[in-house]
Design a protein around this nucleic acid. Sequence first.
DNA 1: AAATGTACTCGAATCGATTCGATCGATTCG
DNA 2: CGAATCGATCGAATCGATTCGAGTACATTT
Lengths: 352, 352
Amino acid sequence: MTTEASDGVSRPTLADVAAAAGVSPSTASLAFSGAGPVSEATRERVHAAAQKLNYAGPDPRAQSLRRGRSGIVGVVMEDRLRDAFRDPMNIAMLDGLADETGTAGVGLLLLTETGDASVSIASAPMDAVVLIGCSTSLAESVAILRQRGLPIVAVEAEELSGVVPIGLENREGSAVIARHLLQLGHTRIGVVTLPIERPHRAMRLSRDWRQTATSEVTIQRLLGVQDVYESFDGFVASTSSIDAGIEAGLALLRDPASRPTGILAQSDLLAVGVLRAAEQLGLAVPDELSVAGFDGARIDSGYDLTTMVQPAVQKGRAAGRAINAMLAGEEPEPVTFTVVFHRGNTTGEAKP
Amino acid sequence: MTTEASDGVSRPTLADVAAAAGVSPSTASLAFSGAGPVSEATRERVHAAAQKLNYAGPDPRAQSLRRGRSGIVGVVMEDRLRDAFRDPMNIAMLDGLADETGTAGVGLLLLTETGDASVSIASAPMDAVVLIGCSTSLAESVAILRQRGLPIVAVEAEELSGVVPIGLENREGSAVIARHLLQLGHTRIGVVTLPIERPHRAMRLSRDWRQTATSEVTIQRLLGVQDVYESFDGFVASTSSIDAGIEAGLALLRDPASRPTGILAQSDLLAVGVLRAAEQLGLAVPDELSVAGFDGARIDSGYDLTTMVQPAVQKGRAAGRAINAMLAGEEPEPVTFTVVFHRGNTTGEAKP
DNA sequence: AAATGTACTCGAATCGATTCGATCGATTCG
DNA sequence: CGAATCGATCGAATCGATTCGAGTACATTT
């Protein structure tokens, strides 16, 4: 029993339309999709019938089953969307991603990696997945997705077989900016890192951070600093935000005895927070303290922040293109982007 | 012909698993979903078979067809994600929304109103839709969605039958803050509005803005000002951002002759932009110029902005709850939120 | 031992559309 | 005039899972 007038709830189906138009369902389908030869007359008849029945078009659920495609790409982000969206880099990426996938007629499904929400990773109707800033259970997630046979693109993640990487020269870039500070004569520096392990919480960076670190971006950027500085103080921010930067800045700068003369922040938001902290403590930038960021987010802070500029939108676009290629059955191209040093007015020579 | 070893691409289906376990597909389904009585022995046998075949679980596409549910809620936002995500209010809402829908195991699909792509309002496989900050073709979009029989929740939109509204006291709140300026003695004020019509572009607010305005939020907030001030200068920002606020601020403040003594911005981001513009022009706030915002976004600006605080996360949550209710077959509850006045240090008495 | 009940398991229909091969009538060509 | 061709349409299989009613085997009750 298909749709009846008495049934106020259920919508008409293509079969109903076909019946009303006096053609077979197959013909009605052809008439709608435009694929295949259909006479103008029948086409109109079918559309008229559809109109009359208030048919809203082919059910996307049925289509996706039949076609084996849902037209949806999953975007897996950090636990809390709030945190993920706070970072302008993520937004820029998402924008680039949406641009590319959008033209291919593909929508973006927001997913988070939280513990039992792996349910969603395991069961969302998607054709491919982009992993962004995922750290924790990357391997787990990838395992599930791989089992589902879904194409996977990971942005700035560790190398994993079967996963198309979109890379960024995090280590190299970080080393460049560290070298910048070194050349300015800074011997004692502090590093404000992005979250490094699960759960995210603010804390001093421990000596053996390498043991428990799970966030690839944080790790690479720290390694970059290590390539230049043998030792340094570090503080792990709970998230990439100005507030978290203030907290970190205060923690590193509060004690005049152990105060570094330069601070490298792993994101511009954190760097701006450090600038605010310096302000609160009455430290002049760059005269008494040099501050550098990472991202090139152009945050309005009253300063021209020294930072490494990354092409976030490009990253998103590249991810989108990789997805599109894979969905088209082509071979995707792994890409690695470079970061560009920007000398602002927040770094200067170390004064003894 | 179902999955075969020779076919490296196609994944095993539940039928394959059932066959391998020596049970019927129906039993295998029961074993997986947990619904219905299945002996422990068969359950294990089925799961073992699934394990051996590397079965990734029921195909969500098939499930959604059968169940008539996809577990996806569409979120319709402005044209450009970049713009939509720039506004902290949108993000907060999205966060609240994700919180509520997430617990119901529902994912969020990002959609824009322009999508002529195949996955658009008309054809995305979703169970319900939330309209956020949609202005342009709201009626059109709603018509399409209604034809599809989808539950619709609209945040801060005009009343439309069959659409569950989540409201905010935009007009009242705007009037409150306008009255605040009036009581401080400001007689000549300027208003910086959010985008008001399509396409979004920066421009002076015309006298007959009412004729072409399509953005409900902008309209209501303007009406609120009109409830207090008979006339005022206005500038329409191209988007809700600090940069757009600077542009608007400069436009309204540049000419000393016609310079207002107080400016009402329709968002905190815009207000911060105005503060920057005032800075550039050498105007002291609040001594020479009063600035007020709307949102309560707590943007770091060096000031404590006078503004109307709105519960953005709550709005998102309410939208999520309404969606959940409708998906559960219950009656959703329309909600209207109030805004709270916050007196900061950016508004002061008008000096003659 | 028959009857009633319980605990599983199975067959078959169904969700709504797409698509391939077959059919059928009409036109064109040899 | 018969055959080949072509366009339009139809039938039936298929996508992969869920679900309801029916059936089977075994345990319990009287």
